[in-house]
Amino acid sequence: MTFVYLLVFGFAATAVLGLITSWIDRKVTARVQYRVGPPFLQPFIDIVKLLGKETVIPEGASKVTFLIAPVIGISGVIAVATLFWVNQFFSEGFVGDWIVAIYLLAIPSLSIILGGFASRNPLASLGSSREMKLVIAYELPFILAALVPVIAAGGSIRLSDIINAQAGGVFAGNISGILALIVAIMCVQAKLALVPFDIPEAETEIVGGALLEYSGPGLAIFRLMKNMLFFTLPFFLIILFFGGLRLNGINILWTILEYVGIVAIITVIRNTNPRVRIDQAVRFFWGPMTLLAVAAVVLALKGL
């Protein structure tokens, strides 16, 4: 049964929704820039095309590590997506809790880092090191922000409990919830490596960073992984702050609105900011964002 969930929801549904999200992102970006933007199927076509391209491996690199890194990444995303979907459906909980989710969400970054390191390219090494620095930068406020729903749900770290605790009213309705949501969105921005936190990939500085050496199927898997994350992370935020997907009656509309709203905010942020330096990013996350998150946690402890 687990595998049916995994295949149908964890992989297929997440991939399709992720690719659609990526299209929304590109389309909105284009509209902001007075452009038309890509056709609807473009993200799918990109993936299919990449599958048909040749696999080239950089000379002198560790072949196995280089090729296995994308697979590790996508496996992490599939696992965490399955975790979310199934917890969404069953109130008794499944496989892992909040801690497991946070740890699994680090696997995609880990895979990018490993892949970049295995590329034997100085620019990719640099990109990977920036990704790593970004991870330690956003992890602190992200954990704090994600802790707010846990506190609000009475200290339960089961995702299903967090969802159920919001049956009466979503956490995003509280002051602490709003603050934490703001912090979490910024962290998601960094997790997805979008401007202003696209420092690891900074095309005009280090050519493409960690993914520089990937081509063909390897790149396809990485892109698919990123697109799936683009769905999974907003989904996580919805679980934490909006009580999960509500698929009954008029609530479907609300769910879609919440989801599209989060994606739209992410896209707008990415289009109205220049890329920051890595030290500025670390400062931003360890400074104002952490303070905001701490405020949210304190408020949540006070029950607000």
Binding site: V195, T204, N271, P274, R275
Partner: peptide, 11 residues
Amino acid sequence: HFLGYNTVYMW
């Protein structure tokens, strides 16, 4: 564009 601020670039 170099700063990743593509909106300025397009405008």
